[in-house]
Design a protein around this nucleic acid. Structure first.
Length: 811
DNA sequence: CAGTGAGCGAGCTTCCGCTTGACTT
């Protein structure tokens, strides 16, 4: 039945198998080991028959998963074991090493890569006399041949820096998480990276809640005059000054009634715009989110496919560097496309904190391929990468910025009109980087050609009350940018980290509906000033990260008891320590010992002395019962509670709605929650109750549930309307079953939300166009089922797994 | 597919960073 999947997996597996299967028939003298199978495939082509290239698939060993995997009694000795999913790879590699004369360890040239080389050396029991360590940052024939000419030995100090990194992360994660299990809720997690990511989101939310908007009046004018050729033209200009108070704005408009408007000066200034550097993982994630609307995980999934199909270079990188080969092919491409004057080759420097630059920037493998074959998403992402890469080697754009200064007689404040003209488009011909702040869409355009001292008359002048903007919530991509800026996390972990904090429900991705806000609007026209109130929508957000109540409680708790770990500079500081280890200036175990001696007592102390955290907030007293009203996190999420458990009378509970938070729910809103469930009256002798459940508002009647449409308010709904909803649903139910087929009725033909379908063994099947649902027979259905082998199978997801469970070994 | 907020208290959960994996709740 699932035979359709086989060809895909088979090809995939066969390809990898070929790469990693020892060529026993033409025994190669040389065995090269790299990290990625796609890379192995490419390199093998460059090296010829004397070399066999295999892949380690990343790290082959890690700290033991059971327990902490560190021997504290024995100077922090790590307990390394081969990961279960790497056992096969390791045994294949072992076989191959026995047959080779020389083994070349060619893992990446960074801390993790060096450690991979060392683990291979150790686990495969290689001998120093025939093992060589080589590195290259770009996958070109020259670079690889050059590397082979210049082998070195494993840099044990760099390996030690990685061991320190690994052990530190294990200690932090595996000592902090159990504190949360005891003090907040089981199964929670904390770590050097994820906890700081959550803190950023929690603090941003606080900034937003505490934000008080200020307003000022912005004055804009439309003038008319004649241009240099005597043609009538209009000109828009803004007043430089903003007025804090309405009276000031009003007074200014009053002045304008009789004022003379004169062009005092016109200045033009040439400016330049330079292209952005080629993509790194983080900038690719940001641009794909802004330009294509991809989530961070989606971008990485599509990029992975582009990499595997050989269309782009490696997609997990922090480097903006391009190989000289790539720069040259860009140049050739630009010349043939646009001409020599569009070429301006550049070397970009990586400014990112903690960047390790083991790879090139993300770029197309072949610059002459402007597009590629593939899915729509693959094409779009590829074109984005192609444009960004090409643009990075193109000339600056030359612009001319014109500023017209207009004086107002009787006032010290001038109006300014400005416009921008592109004199030479340069890289803009291909690509312009987007920004997060798209609202300032007042695109500057060409201004009419005017003369100094010209007099203008106004058509209208308006003073509009404008408010300062709340800070924006993080999106997935802007959080990645912030983490990168702080040097926290690595290209390979940005997407998984974003998934982890969502899977642990610390953070939720969601939208915020806009709110209406009134502003006052003064307008001067025909020497009359009108004063009106208008309204605008504000605060709408889409796909942004919101902290949950549990996220807030956990973050506050950790920040209070472990301020050092939650400090935004913690990672940057330990990175400095790791650099000292890598330089051989300090032993890694000593560095860890210093940390642990300070950290562990705080863990012990917190376990002993801190209170259980429920995020409880007392809102006041219930006016009806006189008992205490509070909110806190309960076993099933945030709740409101009247009374306390100490009192004799048991407390009354009500769940918070999804859009409410312990942090800022008001007493009135909390009391509202207790008005449900509400008895509506009787129908057919049975009580109707209205309430809000997990799936929204519903009516309960005679043990059946009836969902309320969005248009009905559970607080307001009338008895008549409720009866109508119940009868509608019954009617639908009656029409749901079209026919029942088979001897035991194993197939049912039904009416659903999207039309007719049939179901068998809890799997739903489509009815193809042209077939009437009423004409279906048992035989026909069996045929249709055979034709839909993958019905009921969920689409494969990459996101959730990467973050959470990879416990493939467990039963 | 719907309202819970807890009792004997077993035995479990968890990190970050490399890589790609592959038959279901």
């Amino acid at each position: 039945m699932k035979i359709w999947f086989v060809p895909f997996y088979f090809c995939y597996f066969a390809a990898n198998f070929r790469i990693n299967s020892p060529k026993t028939l033409n025994m190669s003298k040389n065995l090269v080991i790299v990290e990625s199978p796609a890379k192995a495939k490419t390199i093998e082509k460059f090296l010829g028959k004397e070399y066999q290239v295999m892949s380690s698939f990343g790290h082959i060993r890690d700290l033991a998963e059971k327990g902490i995997g560190i021997d504290f009694e024995n100077n922090y000795k790590p307990d390394y074991i081969v990961s279960t999913d790497k056992k096969k790879v390791v045994s294949e590699l072992k076989k191959a090493t026995k047959l080779a004369e020389t083994i070349w360890l060619a893992s990446d040239e960074d801390r993790e890569g060096e450690a991979i080389a060392w683990h291979l050396y150790d686990e495969l029991k290689l001998k120093p006399e025939n093992t060589k360590r080589i590195v290259f940052h770009e996958i070109t024939k020259d670079a690889i041949l050059n590397a082979i000419e210049n082998p070195r030995s494993i840099d044990i100090h760099l390996v030690d820096a990685q061991q320190a990194r690994r052990v530190l992360d294990r200690i932090v994660g595996f000592e902090l998480s159990p504190v949360l299990w005891r003090k907040v809720k089981p199964s929670l997690s904390a770590g050097r990276v994820q906890s700081v990511a959550v803190r950023l989101i929690v603090e941003r939310e606080r900034d937003i809640n505490q934000f008080v908007a200020e307003s000022a009046y912005k004055v804009t004018a439309t003038f008319k005059t004649n241009d240099a050729n005597g043609q009538p033209v209009e000109l828009k200009a803004d007043l430089q000054q903003r007025f804090a108070e309405k009276q000031e704005a009003m007074a200014f408009l009053e002045k304008c009634k009789k004022a003379a408007f004169t062009i005092e000066s016109i200045s033009t200034k040439p400016t330049k715009k330079s292209p952005a550097p080629p993509f790194t993982t983080s900038t690719l994630q940001q641009e794909a989110a802004r330009k294509l609307g991809f989530s961070v995980a989606q971008t990485m999934m599509v990029a992975q496919r582009l990499y595997e199909s050989g269309n782009i270079t490696y997609m997990r990188t922090d480097s903006v560097n391009l190989s000289s080969l790539a720069i040259n092919t860009c140049k050739a491409e630009i010349i043939s496309m646009a001409g020599q004057k569009y070429v301006h080759t550049r070397k970009f420097n990586t400014k990112t904190k903690g960047a390790q630059e083991a790879h090139e920037a993300i770029r197309p493998t072949y610059m002459n391929a402007h597009t590629i074959e593939g899915t729509n998403q693959e094409k779009k992402l590829y074109e984005l990468i192609w444009k960004r890469t090409i643009a990075s080697q193109m000339s600056d754009a030359e612009l001319e910025k014109t500023t017209i200064n207009i004086s107002v007689s009787g006032s010290e404040y001038p109006f300014i009109a400005s416009g921008e003209v592109i004199v030479f488009d340069g890289f803009l011909k291909v690509y312009l980087e987007s920004t997060d702040e798209e609202n300032d869409a007042e695109s500057e355009s060409l201004l009419p050609s005017l003369r100094e001292n010209e007099k203008l008359t106004y058509i209208e002048i308006a003073a509009q009350q404008r408010f300062t903007q709340k800070p924006a919530r993080y999106s997935e991509a802007s959080l990645v940018r912030k983490l990168e800026e702080l040097g926290i996390g690595r290209p390979s972990t940005y997407a998984p980290t974003i998934s982890t904090i969502q899977n642990r429900t610390y953070v939720e991705k969601g939208d915020r509906q806009p709110e209406k806000r009134d502003f006052s609007y003064l307008k001067l026209k025909n020497d009359k000033i009108s004063d009106s109130i208008k309204s605008e929508n504000t605060g709408a957000e889409k796909s942004k990260l919101f902290p949950s109540d549990i996220g807030i409680v956990v973050s506050d708790f950790l920040t209070e008891y472990f301020p050092d770990i939650l400090n935004y500079n913690f990672t940057a500081d330990v990175e400095k320590e790791f650099d000292l280890i890598a330089d051989g200036k300090i032993k890694w175990t000593k560095s860890i010992d210093k940390f642990y001696k300070k950290f562990h007592p705080i863990v012990e102390d917190t376990l002993k002395n801190s209170e259980r955290q429920s995020g409880e907030r007392i809102l006041g007293t219930d006016p009806v019962s006189g008992r205490q009203l509070s909110v806190k996190i309960g076993k099933f999420g945030p709740l409101a509670q009247i009374g306390t458990s100490e009192e004799e009378e048991k407390p009354v509970f009500a769940s918070l709605r999804k859009d409410q938070s312990i942090e800022n729910i008001t007493m009135e809103e909390a009391l509202e929650l207790f008005k449900l469930p509400r008895q509506l009256g009787e129908f057919e002798g049975k009580v109707m109750t209205v309430a809000i459940g997990r799936f929204g508002p519903y009516i309960r009647h005679d043990a059946s549930f009836y969902s309320l449409p969005k248009t009905d308010d559970p607080m307001e709904i009338s008895m008549e309307r409720a009866v109508e909803i119940i009868e509608n649903k019954r009617e639908e139910e009656k029409n749901r079953v079209i026919s029942i087929l088979g001897e035991n009725g194993e197939i049912q033909v039904l009416n659903g939300r999207y039309g007719a379908y049939f179901t068998c063994n809890k799997i739903n099947y489509k009815i193809p166009k042209g077939i009437e649902a009423t004409d279906l027979t048992f035989e026909k259905c069996t045929q249709l089922m055979a034709a839909q082998p993958d019905a009921g199978i969920k689409k494969k997801g990459f996101t959730k797994k990467g973050a959470g469970g990879k416990k493939t070994s467990k039963k």
